[in-house]
């Protein structure tokens, strides 16, 4: 039992379960899942389906944070990718044609990759602080997205595109399958190759990693590109869900929710060890919170209040200074061993 309690995913999973159970109070049939016309329906399925874009973004964010970085531009990248895809679709004679949709998706993903390359370039080659480097695209990307949509909301009339978010395949929502596939691929990519370990080593101790011959520049660059890719797919999903692209609102504030999901999942903002399972739990927890608040009739926007509390609680739990103060022990002095260089120090 104590092993279960000590597992780093215990608290997030427990919180998720409590939250799910509390829904029973407001929605008696909350856990009901039924199959209609060989499609899965139910509140739980909805939560899974709606959490797909956040999950994808959080997945990329996990790797970026593991290297000790952060990517604030994911929301803007989503908006750009979704906008470009929708723009292409509305200009085609047959908006529903499979070819159209495939090209649109490829376009969206391609632009997201380019933006990821840009972020990675600024961080790994120019050496800008990740917060600043991605802040640039966070601001400019919104403008870019609106430039693509010309400030309008592009509405597409394409069942095929909508399929990305609302469609069903083999009785499961396609978005869930897609997210699951990307998660699985990421797990394989990081844990079946040496990528995961090298990323953790770069985030855990950049100096030691360099001296052990790890090519951190390429790794860090690649991680930002991967995050761009994830955000791109998420952008397609988010715009498909509403069949329209809105440069202003697609992916709005998702960077913060994604960071939150990663932190809830037990990946430290200082970099190092990351947990993809934790991020999945974190993203589900956030989506469940949103859904729960929605069903209880509390104004949906107040979820932010709960998120604030969660952020503070988790950061305090992670903070060594806080734990030290809880134990009422004087902070200094520690053994006189030479301290490892602070990881937070990234020169501008």
């Amino acid at each position: 039992m104590s092993a279960v309690l000590k597992h780093r995913l215990f608290w997030p999973v427990a919180a998720l379960l409590v939250l799910l159970l509390s829904n029973l109070i407001f929605t008696p049939g909350f856990f009901n899942i039924e199959v209609r016309q060989s499609h899965l329906y139910g509140s739980l399925v909805d939560i899974l389906r709606l959490s797909a874009p956040l999950l994808l973004v959080a997945l990329g964010m996990t790797l970026v944070i593991a290297t000790g970085g952060i990517d604030l531009s994911v929301g803007s990248v989503m908006a750009v990718s979704g906008a470009l895809a929708c723009l292409y679709i509305v200009h085609q004679p047959d908006q529903g044609a499979p070819g159209t949709i495939i090209v649109a998706c490829l376009l969206g993903i391609a632009i997201a990759l380019v933006l990821g390359l840009w972020n990675g370039f600024l961080v790994s080659v120019i050496g800008l602080q990740p917060i600043i480097a991605t802040l640039i695209l966070m601001v400019a990307g919104r403008g870019l997205a609106q430039l693509i949509t010309e400030g309008q909301i592009i509405t597409v009339n394409s069942p095929g595109y909508r399929f990305l978010s609302a469609g069903y395949w083999l009785t499961f929502p396609f978005a869930v399958i897609l997210a699951a596939v990307v998660v699985a691929l990421t797990v394989v990519l990081t844990r079946r190759t040496a990528l995961g370990m090298l990323v953790e080593s770069v985030g855990g101790n950049p100096r030691a990693s360099r001296l052990a011959g790890v090519s951190s520049r390429t790794l860090i660059w690649g991680v930002y590109v991967f995050t761009g890719l994830c955000a791109g797919i998420a952008g397609l999903m988010a715009t498909a869900n509403v069949s329209s692209a809105d440069g202003n609102n697609t992916g709005y504030l998702i960077e913060l929710n994604a960071i939150l999901a990663v932190v809830i999942g037990g990946t430290s903002l200082a970099g190092g060890r990351f947990s993809i399972a934790g991020t999945v739990v974190g993203a589900l927890l956030i989506q469940t919170l949103d859904t729960t608040i929605y069903t209880t009739g509390i104004p949906a926007q107040t979820t932010q209040l709960f998120k604030a509390i969660v952020v503070i609680a988790i950061c305090l739990i992670q903070s060594p200074a806080f734990r030290a103060k809880l134990r009422r022990r004087p902070a200094a002095p520690v053994a006189p061993a030479p301290a490892a260089p602070s990881k937070a120090e990234v020169s501008l």
Binding site: L256, I259, P299, Q304, L305, A308, I312, S319, A321, K325
Partner: peptide, 29 residues
């Protein structure tokens, strides 16, 4: 919080951002 618990300003003020915006909606939507 930033000083005494040595938390990153980024994350603390992010929480503050959520908190203040959430309080807005508690007052009125």
């Amino acid at each position: 919080m930033i000083h005494y618990f040595e938390l990153q300003p980024f994350i603390v003020t992010l929480a503050g951002m959520f908190l203040a915006r959430g309080l807005c909606y508690v007052i009125s939507t």
